[in-house]
Design a protein around this nucleic acid. Structure first.
Lengths: 314, 314
DNA sequence: GGCGAGCCACAACCACCGGTTGTGGGTACG
DNA sequence: CGTACCCACAACCGGTGGTTGTGGCTCGCC
């Protein structure tokens, strides 16, 4: 395809061959192979070179697209020149959704979203330190435990919603206060002990006298959603921006929690020295997300909400 | 790359190999070759399959992009399932610009713009008839000469502007009436005798008593622009939507012509039976272009301006 | 008009890529 | 603790994709 594109631009196989450092015959065979594979003629051969046929003209932009895509793909892994790479906790998490929003409003940025698949923010910090990733969205319970080379800035707060099946007694509510959850069983599987989420739910249960069951392994979202859809007494908590309900909707309901809103604080871990230049725009973007009400509940270790002033410190 | 994408989705080389109808070892070698070429590890191998590394995660969407691009590329040439293919007279012509506008407002359409490189509308009609292209923007002086299998509908009128260099006596005008052009030399090179353009300029010269010099070969836009920029007495006519002034601007001026506006009529030639379904939207789009004033001059063979009702007949 | 200069295509040749089969190592599970 | 399953490595082999050599074709120029 590279040969085809270049030959089409130059109008000659010979020159293209020279540029690629191969013989004219090699390029001729490449084109011939391409034509054989597509079963169309791409060039009309003339005495002074080649000229695109209709099929060739139609093919050319797509071929350009492909070679550019290949270049982007290899650039995405080359340590020196690689795109902005940000770690999130799960591709359907609120962080991922916010990043996706950012990318949609800035489609020109070369952004790769990855998941480290580790719970511990310190491991994420180590990956940032090592340069494996440029930044990581995490909730850091104790900033002092981070390595010296990385720092952390508050990104945004993710408000929680209750997710229940149609037979649950709270299924019809339009919104709920935390007090209304008292006595109901809230099941949040897959929470590693002593992780950032465990701490969060511990405090939440204590402060509002809730019954949050964080035990048991997580067998995947689909299993969880299946159970919720069938159950009349199990509910779970999800971030309002989390992208759930993906497989077959299941007729589940998301019910906002208010007075106070419950917020899970998310910070961005980034290197103290030479952060990726593209990070600035991302930070600005998350800082402009609609702020939560002043009465919002946050865990004790949450950083003070900085609103849009956070971007200044980047 | 296909193997990589599929293996990443399935989490196993084995299954991917089964799908591709090759052995597991073959896929393993493909992945290994990719990793060697990129000089990164894409998968971590586990006992129950493979899992993406960070680099692999970053690479995956780009790889998906590439394979999708390849699929689009081959689809663009396959006769059965190919994209909407429309012929225009030059990639910088008003027709091409209008199509580009259309594509920008409907990025999802798979549109290929090609140039047949023939002047004669009947040749374009033959290409439409043969199925080489789905439609062609042309100015047809005599609809009766078209083959029975194709038909023609009015697309839009392209208003003309005068293009002059800074030293030309008319260079300072904000707009001009055709009468003001009288006596000035207008040079329109590259017009084949008895072509649609030749007829157009003949009538124009006659109706307004102008001096239009259509002789001489066309050595390319750059040469024409060079000559215009230097000359104090040569001007030319261009469509207001034509994408000229491309190389280095040359300090040329485009001066609209009004009272009356001079319009070059463009029709769309399309097959009478089974036109490409995507054509409807294109026709609707060009029909919605801002109409020209009622006093607009058109050549005698121009179809009556149908405004937006043209789309009905598609 | 004949001739040389550029092109591209075809033929023959050969290295190596990309598939095959066979086998071994590692991990999870009953 | 054996079994099942998956991936990697080795040896092998045909075909792809490069090379050199050559021929045909079309310009443009004496």
């Amino acid at each position: 395809m590279r040969s085809f594109v270049r030959a089409a631009e130059l109008g000659q196989l010979q020159q293209a061959a020279d540029e690629f450092g191969v013989t004219q015959q090699a390029v001729s065979k490449r084109i011939a192979a391409l034509e054989r594979e597509l079963d169309v003629r791409l060039f009309t051969r003339t005495a002074r070179g080649v000229e695109l046929t209709l099929d060739g003209q139609a093919f050319l932009p797509h071929a350009r697209d492909v070679v550019a895509g290949v270049d982007r793909a290899v650039a995405a892994t080359r340590p020196g020149s690689r795109a902005l790479r940000i770690d999130v906790l799960g591709l359907r998490s609120a962080q991922a959704v916010v990043l996706h929003d950012y990318w949609r409003s800035h489609p020109e940025t070369n952004l790769d979203v990855v998941t480290l698949r580790v719970d511990d923010p310190r491991e994420a910090a180590a990956a940032v330190q090592a340069g494996d990733i440029d930044a990581s969205f995490r909730s850091v319970t104790d900033a002092a435990t981070l390595p010296r080379d990385v720092r952390m800035i508050h990104a945004f707060d993710s408000p929680l919603e209750l997710l229940v099946g149609p037979r649950h007694p709270l299924a019809a509510a339009r919104s709920l206060t935390p007090a209304k959850l008292r006595g109901h069983r809230i099941w949040v599987p897959g929470i590693a002990p002593r992780s950032e989420w465990a701490d969060f739910y511990d405090q939440l249960a204590t402060d509002f006298d809730l019954r949050i069951d964080a035990a048991g392994p997580h067998f995947g979202d689909e299993v969880l959603l299946d159970i919720l859809a069938d159950s009349a007494d199990v509910a779970t908590l999800v971030g309002s921006r989390d992208r759930y309900l993906w497989p077959a909707n299941h007729d589940l309901r998301r019910i906002p929690i208010v007075r106070p809103t419950l917020a899970y604080p998310l910070s961005l871990i980034l290197p103290r020295a030479n952060p990726h230049p593209g990070l600035r725009a991302v930070i600005d973007h998350v800082a402009r997300l609609t702020p939560l009400p002043a009465t919002t509940w946050r865990p004790s270790w949450a950083p003070a909400s900085m609103c849009s002033s956070a971007s200044k410190s980047a």
